[in-house]
Design a protein around this nucleic acid. Structure first.
Lengths: 197, 197
DNA sequence: TCTTTGTTAGTGAGTATTCACTAACTTAAA
DNA sequence: TTTAAGTTAGTGAATACTCACTAACAAAGA
């Protein structure tokens, strides 16, 4: 889907510093000044590695999206049962979020979005990556009659993604102060108990 | 729940101007300068009516929350059936959002949230108002065995609220370019077809 | 093996712009 | 004559970003 981005070591460090700031202080804290402070060098040095703040965010989101896509592919490989696929997909997602909480901040923050068309498109791409993996699972589950058939796959996918997003949101406003893997698993079970035939 | 706020005519005008800006330009566009321009007077005149920008947002959110609470009460009065209550609650909500799209921008924007404790609390209060009305409907539906019982009412409420939130989000990033009442009704039907026993 | 030349990754000072907010003044109505 | 509601003209702080400059290193030619 996407060509492999060539990210230098320093660029990766900067991205990780940006993530650290996002987790700690949110979108509002992500300034060039704070980024430079986190990297222990001057503000202008940032611009040796990125042309703009927008570029930093876009590269960061792309890097994470790519990471996510690869993880999903690996995790779902060889799994046949839709229920197992469903469970694996979300378990994988929750453990990824646990590892990279700033991803949640970035993707679910509208502050980032409004200004830049490029950032907007990248976030949209991430939603698409997620859909790309979830939809076929739901569809196949309905075909094989293990998931309920009384509702269109798009509608079912919407409901599933919405509840997952809300869990993310709650996790974020709780400042990541509960175990997203445990709560995520609870949600998976709740969802399955509803959509299983 | 909340004492009636005493809002002057001018204050209400300013709140409505803020709403107009939110709808058109999002959280980033809501500045005192833009607010003054929308009101056709100088920036400093705003401060004749509000002590701070934060106060404007808080009063606005409180006003909307109160409005919402009253509407829900009226709409649900006299309805017995949980399914009808459920449908009415969300139809009411979607028509309210259609009338006040800026409410969606305000409440679902994380940009607003981060900065101020006061704003944070007000948004939390709004979520509570919504929960206050939805939870008893779900609970009663489960008691009367018209809604499924295989899942805790909290979990069911979470899934419902998540899918509604996601619809709001989609509506917003589509710049309000579809009919939220129609799509909302579709969602209500989808949800009912899942949670009805 | 020097020496020239170019590159990479940094510095610190400064740019224009935007932000919320304020002091001092004016005007008009009660 | 007091007060409410407006004006003009500012403030300081923060923002992303640019500028001229430099130390350290790499490569290539004499």
């Amino acid at each position: 889907m996407n060509q492999i981005e060539n990210i230098s070591g320093r660029q990766l460090e900067i991205i990780e510093a940006a993530g650290k700031i996002l987790t700690a202080s949110g979108v509002g804290g992500l300034t060039i000044k704070n980024l430079a402070k986190e990297m222990n060098f001057s503000e202008s040095a940032i611009y040796r590695h990125f042309p703009s703040k927008e570029a930093i965010i876009i590269v960061m989101l792309n890097y994470l999206a790519q990471n996510m896509d690869v993880r999903y592919h690996k995790a779902l490989k060889g799994i046949e049962s839709p229920i197992e696929s469903f469970t694996t997909l979300f378990q994988n997602q929750f453990s990824f979020f646990k590892l990279n909480p700033y991803f949640v901040v970035a993707v679910f923050s509208d502050g980032l979005m409004e200004e830049s068309q490029g950032i907007n498109e990248t976030i949209f791409k991430i939603m698409t990556v997620k859909m790309k993996h979830l939809m076929p699972i739901v569809f196949e589950g309905q075909q094989k009659e293990v998931f309920i058939n009384t509702i269109a796959p798009e509608a079912l996918t919407h409901i599933i993604m919405g509840s997952v997003r809300l869990l993310m949101f709650k996790w974020r406003i709780a400042h990541f102060n509960f175990d997203i893997e445990i709560e995520g698993n609870n949600l998976i079970q709740s969802l399955l108990s509803i959509i299983k035939k």
